[in-house]
Write a protein that binds this DNA or RNA. Structure first.
Lengths: 226, 226
DNA sequence: CGGACCCTTGATTCAGATCAACGAATGTGG
DNA sequence: CCACATTCGTTGATCTGAATCAAGGGTCCG
């Protein structure tokens, strides 16, 4: 299936938004649309084909698996986000869909060529990659010394921010994109501990749980600050 | 002090190596040399002036400090490495010298202009930033679920790699760039635990300690794999 | 209706934090 | 050159927060 940028839901937020129409159509020839369902793998660590993609809808997780088979979530990808590898010879991490997702996929070399051809695209990607780097370091800081309470609270606030339209204020009411197990994998905790912390926050009156995934921030000030 | 690229120790490894001589001289006009001593701060988190720098010699740490004043090391920077912020309005993290260090410092806007002017520079930085991103995720994975034993062992191996000239094989014999306390801050452990693990590795015959900082890898196979 | 998940809650255990003491190396001022 | 303070690392004893082990409930789906 070829790309139809004109109806792309993230056409003016994604990296390719810096291109003009003609350039984008040219780039579109090198890409393909791909749809994933929950749990499907987009890239697997070690794959020798470099590739990359822009996320149009849904959410992805970037993970690594250690020797004893425990999975660690390294990052979440939201719509308009970019994943993958343009330069390296192989994929460093697994990329898996958290739910149904739609993407625009490119081969690594093809995208590297586009960067060469359209310097603005490279710049846009540089900004984006720096943002990802800061986000990764943010998670590192959160995960580092903080107590379980602080980690879960920090993850809640960060997801509330991601769920909001305006980047400044968090959504007061949203659905967790992750299961308990996935939250645990992201925070370096166990399912049970995550569950207990959510219970605690609800008892404290900081949040209200609506079903398994629904969260309402009743009094964010009561959440342990990091 | 103006820059003297012709005698720069990292002139063909740093990001600016992709520029030709004339371009580099042009860029050099926007930069300044700066020398730091152990513990001196290059950038402080929250500073409203964006700036960036290439490290010519020595080593830096990128850190963040949480509410209770505990410091977390997010990344180490080695010669030819690049730190800082070209686009964002403020510095996200602290950058501090681990020992004496020499750098090439640019204002954020000046460097952003250079990227605009020399697309190759932007591309080089994109590669570099992606590498940093992978390194950060590597640390995240290491720090995530691993035991204290695995973390310290992983850090040793990673430092052995950084200390080696050839990137494929680790140095068998090197000096730790970090104090025990700094290793602890990087790994999310305490000084005491780091010290105990090193003692254990030495007892197991995996390493030999030479003074406070010296490490000899006697039998790396005995180090707990991650 | 039965099975498969996913989540919650309670009891117990354990790895690493914390507390405490000490030794070695380095620096400082008399 | 020595007395003294300071910093850094090691080692031991104790404590504790989160992991692990265990059980049960809710929901979805065939």
């Amino acid at each position: 299936m070829s790309l139809a940028c004109s109806v792309c839901p993230v056409r003016d937020r994604a990296a390719c938004a810096v291109l003009d129409e003609a350039e984008r159509d040219e780039l579109a020839k090198a890409g393909r649309t791909r749809k994933l369902t929950k749990g499907e793998t987009l890239f697997a660590a070690g794959e020798s084909e470099a590739a990359c993609a822009t996320l149009k809808s849904g959410a992805l997780k970037i993970t690594s698996t250690d020797v004893d088979g425990r999975e660690r979530i390294l990052s979440l990808v939201h719509p308009s986000g970019f994943v993958g590898e343009m330069f390296g010879p192989y994929m460093r991490h697994d990329v898996v869909a958290l739910g149904d997702a739609e993407l625009c996929v490119f081969s690594g070399p093809a995208f590297a060529d586009a960067i060469e051809k359209y310097p603005r695209l490279g710049q846009a990607l540089l900004r984006r990659t720096q943002e990802d780097l800061f986000a990764s370091r943010e998670l590192l800081a959160l995960t580092g010394n903080a107590s379980a309470e602080q980690r879960v609270s920090g993850a809640l606030l960060s997801m509330a921010r991601a769920a909001s339209d305006s980047p400044c204020h968090p959504a007061m009411q949203f659905d967790l994109p992750l299961s308990r197990g996935e939250m645990a994998d992201m925070l370096g905790l166990t399912i049970e501990t995550v569950s207990r912390m959510l219970t605690r926050f609800e008892k404290d009156g900081a949040i209200k749980r609506n079903g398994k995934r629904g969260i309402e921030l009743v009094d964010p000030a009561l959440l342990p600050q990091n």
